[in-house]
Design a protein around this nucleic acid. Structure first.
Lengths: 290, 290
DNA sequence: TCAGCCATGAAACATTTGTTGCACGGTTTT
DNA sequence: AAAACCGTGCAACAAATGTTTCATGGCTGA
């Protein structure tokens, strides 16, 4: 006999529901309505909450074709596993070749990065900014391609906190700086896979020293995110042929600087104006001509 | 001293991680990396997959302040419960002010930048990449916040063309470099309003020397775009309170590097592999854990 | 009415769970 | 050098889990 498409164990359940005995229907409805608890809590717990007999769950599972509740639960668990990398992945565009292949490549890449930015969690950025605001001193680290992010952050923060912000290893070997971290200070470490030893060392030193550690990384499980008080995530993954993307990291850095600045209030504004005035006096900029 | 926000049991875990014994660190890392399985599967299962002793999980839980593995697991389970507005995708919230004003600010900014990226003209990037491909030598300039973009571009291009790419002013005053530009070479200048004198001088020197001038700027009328062979535009404008945005410039730089790399074909690939092998040999990177 | 059937709840079952005590080996302290 | 300590794996433990059996009660059909 032709079964309906068993897209998920949940839909199987719902389909079979009407043809079941009363009590099993009740239990089945409860499971369908609370499938998260079904995967997490114990059969007896569920029975108590549903006001039913524990055995009913086993019977339900068998009634819809599983060997027992364990197997049903396992199926539900797999069904809601978050691993499936998001329903995004629009792609589908055939990789045209020819003279325009490069252009399409660029367009695709830009669109992909644009899609990634709104996925950056904003809350941690705001929290990290507050930590920066409270820090007596701010250290910034990033190696290899992440160095660019570190330097941008350093530049922007120094615009309004010139004497409290410093790049790690800016003047000499890192080791000197590593011992300089103190509680009440903040250390920002930027990195993504593959992680450099140097950045991990900085993160560890920061954690040991009791300073506030802020990690900008591509994963919670990044070594420099271990023990971090704030983890700011971005997506570095890129299509093959591209280098890892730093767009997200840059966006985070800029948001971080901006929020920190806004927390600084009038004082920060004043210092920014001073810095700008000094630059203008040095005629660093080209005057705006009419 | 205020404790860091223990937003989730996972962050507690990660914070405590570095100060734990070796085995507990391993187990803790495993839990952090597989927190979904941690909530669904049994302790012994996890132990088998992690290659550790079941008891280590109980000890881990106690080490970070829980009464046992059951309690830790329960906390993780609650943290993952889908109903509550998860910390991720916290989008869609009304534009409230108050303590969350910063968060809304960040979200707005990220969305605005995401909207800006697809507006970047792709065609000029592909053309500029071809110019880079043909250039015997590549010079890169950028000052102030644009320095970060210049350095990223320098880093990525050097991965597969180590001897032909150089930052202007990297070793000593710019003036020495300015006289070194030759026809057949390419000079990349990055800048936006307000424009620095130094970058304009580089652009002018490049133009006079007959080298190919590539400008990455926020406007066609930017001084460094005058006489440029390729102008790559991005939007630097930002909401008030934010610094000019470099996200677009970074995206351009990365696309430029990527297309140039793809034009390089097998030879470029080979050189990239050599570079990576050299870095791996120097154990620059943290080895991927099992 | 009686037999047969099925749904249901309670209790007993074997298994698996999380936990804890113990012994071994390494390091640090006295 | 001895002692105290800590991290770790192993094995035994009680508790909890999912399952099964059994007795009960209601329903249907002869």
């Amino acid at each position: 006999m032709a079964e309906p498409a068993k897209s998920s164990p949940l839909s199987e359940l719902r389909i079979a529901l009407p043809s079941l005995p009363m009590r099993l229907q009740e239990v089945g409805r409860f499971v369908a309505a609370n499938d998260y608890d079904a995967t997490t809590r114990s059969m007896r717990d569920l029975a108590a909450e549903a006001g039913a007999d524990p055995a009913a769950f086993t019977r339900l599972a068998k009634a819809i074709g599983y060997s027992g509740w364990d197997e049903l639960r396992a199926a539900l668990t797999e069904a809601r596993r978050p691993s499936q990398t998001s329903p995004f992945s629009g792609r589908a565009k055939g990789r045209r070749h020819g003279p325009n292949a490069d252009v399409t490549l660029v367009i695709d890449k830009l669109e992909a990065e644009a899609a990634g930015l709104p996925r950056i969690p904003a809350q941690p950025i705001a929290e990290a900014a507050r930590a920066l605001h409270d820090a007596k001193r701010i250290w910034i680290t990033g190696y290899r391609s992440c160095r660019s992010v570190a330097e941008l952050l350093n530049y922007e923060l120094r615009l309004f906190r010139p004497e409290q912000v410093q790049l790690v290893g800016a003047s000499g070997p890192d080791d000197l700086d590593l011992g300089a971290f103190r509680p009440g200070e903040a250390v920002i470490v930027i990195g993504f896979l593959p992680y450099t030893h140097a950045s991990v060392r900085v993160a560890q030193a920061a954690h040991r020293s009791g300073a506030t550690l802020i990690a900008i990384a591509d994963s919670h499980s990044a070594p420099m995110a271990e023990g971090a008080d704030h983890v700011l995530l971005f997506e570095a993954a890129s299509p093959p042929g591209f280098f890892p993307s730093l767009t997200g990291a840059i966006a985070i850095a800029q948001s971080l600087a901006a929020v920190t600045f806004s927390l600084g209030g009038a004082a920060a504004k004043k210092r920014l104006e001073n810095t700008e005035a000094r630059l203008a006096a040095a005629t660093t900029y080209v005057s705006e001509k009419g």
